[in-house]
C-alpha cells in the first residue's frame, strides 16, 4: 500500500526527463556510434574532398590549399578527352546494363521460383558470382573475355552451324553481338536475382488462387499480379545495379580517377573534381530512376 502511494506521489513531479526526451535520448544512444562514424568517416572527408576540388594544394606535407574556383571542373569537362570519353562510355554502359540486368534477373528469378527438382542447386549456382566474382582474378578473367568464350559454346547449342548458314551472315552476327552482351550482363545478375526471388516469395499466394478461380492464364497472372507486386524490388534492383557498377573493375572512369590520385603526379585536387562530377551523374541517374518508377509503386500501394 505504501509503495503504491509513493508512485502516485512521484508522478506529478516535473522532471527534465519527460517521456519524449527519454525516447529521444534512447534513439541517440543507439545511433551514437554511427554519429561518430559519420562525422569522422563521411561528413569530414566529403567536406575536405569538396574543398580540395575547388582549390590547389600548395604544400603536400600539411596540405595547405589555395582557392582556385572551378578550374579543375572546367579542365575535366572541357580539356580532358580521356576523362570525357570514359564518362560518356560509362553513361552509355549504365543505360545499357541497368534495364537488361533487370529483365534477365527477373526472368531467372521467375524460373527459379517455380517448384522443380534441383532448384536449390540452381539457386546456389546463380549466386556464385557474388561469392567469387568480386575477387581479383575473376575480374582479370572477365577482362580477358573468358565469359565471351562461354557464349560461343552456348551459341553453338542454340544456333547450330547449319541453321546459321540458313539464316544468313547478318542475322547471325546480330545474334552473336546480342549473346555477347548477355554474357557480360548475366554476370551482374547475382544479387538482383536474389532480391527478385525474395520479392516473388513475398507475393501472397491467395492472389494467384483467386486469379486461377477466375480462369486467368499464367501469362496474365505474370503481368497483372507478379509484375505490379514486385515493383519495389525493381526500384531497389535498379539502384543496386547502378551502385554495383562502382566496384566493377571494368569501370574505366574510376580507374582513371584512381590513377590520377595515387600514381604519377598525385593530382588530388583534379581527381577529387573528377570524382564529384561522376557522383553528380550517378545521383542524377538514380533520381531519374526514382521519378520514373514512382507512379508505378504508388499505384500498388493504393490498390
Amino acid at each position: 500500500m505504501a509503495k503504491k502511494l509513493d508512485i502516485n506521489a512521484a508522478a506529478p513531479k516535473k522532471s527534465f526527463w519527460n517521456l519524449k526526451r527519454k525516447e529521444n535520448m534512447n534513439g541517440y544512444l543507439f545511433i551514437l556510434p554511427w554519429l561518430i562514424g559519420a562525422a569522422a568517416l563521411f561528413i569530414f572527408p566529403i567536406y575536405r574532398s569538396l574543398e580540395m576540388s575547388f582549390s590547389n594544394i600548395i604544400n603536400y606535407t600539411d596540405y595547405t590549399i589555395e582557392f582556385a574556383g572551378l578550374e579543375h571542373y572546367k579542365n575535366a569537362l572541357t580539356g580532358d578527352t580521356e576523362y570525357l570519353n570514359s564518362l560518356f562510355n560509362n553513361i552509355k554502359n549504365m543505360l545499357q546494363t541497368v534495364p537488361f540486368v533487370n529483365v534477365f534477373s527477373l526472368l531467372i528469378a521467375v524460373m527459379l521460383n517455380r517448384k522443380f527438382k534441383g532448384r536449390t542447386l540452381f539457386r546456389a549456382i546463380f549466386f556464385l558470382p557474388v561469392i567469387l566474382g568480386s575477387g581479383f582474378a575473376m575480374s582479370q578473367l572477365m577482362n580477358q573475355g573468358v565469359d565471351q568464350q562461354a557464349m560461343e559454346t552456348v551459341k553453338e547449342v542454340l544456333l547450330p552451324r547449319q541453321v546459321a548458314i540458313y539464316l544468313g551472315e547478318e542475322l547471325t552476327n546480330a545474334i552473336s553481338v546480342f549473346l555477347n552482351l548477355i554474357s557480360t550482363i548475366l554476370w551482374k545478375c547475382g544479387v538482383p536475382i536474389v532480391i527478385y526471388l525474395a520479392g516473388l516469395q513475398g507475393v501472397p499466394s491467395s492472389l494467384y488462387e483467386a486469379a486461377r478461380v477466375d480462369a486467368a492464364t499464367e501469362w496474365e497472372m505474370f503481368w497483372l499480379i507478379t509484375l505490379p507486386m514486385i515493383t519495389p524490388m525493381m526500384l531497389l534492383n535498379m539502384v543496386f545495379t547502378v551502385v554495383d557498377s562502382f566496384t566493377d573493375s571494368q569501370n574505366w572512369l574510376l580507374r582513371l580517377i584512381e590513377r590520377t590520385s595515387f600514381s604519377g603526379d598525385f593530382e588530388y585536387e583534379y581527381a577529387a573534381a573528377m570524382a564529384w562530377i561522376f557522383f553528380v551523374w550517378i545521383i542524377a541517374l538514380i533520381a531519374v530512376i526514382f521519378l520514373v518508377m514512382r507512379p508505378f509503386i504508388n499505384k500498388v500501394k493504393d490498390n
Partner: peptide, 20 residues
C-alpha cells in the same frame, strides 16, 4: 545520410581519408 553513404562511390572520399 545513411542512404547517401550507400550511394557514394568510395573514390569520392578516399583522398581525404587517405590523408587523414
Amino acid at each position: 545520410i545513411v542512404v547517401l553513404s550507400i550511394l557514394m562511390p568510395i573514390q569520392v572520399i578516399i583522398i581525404p581519408m587517405y590523408i587523414t
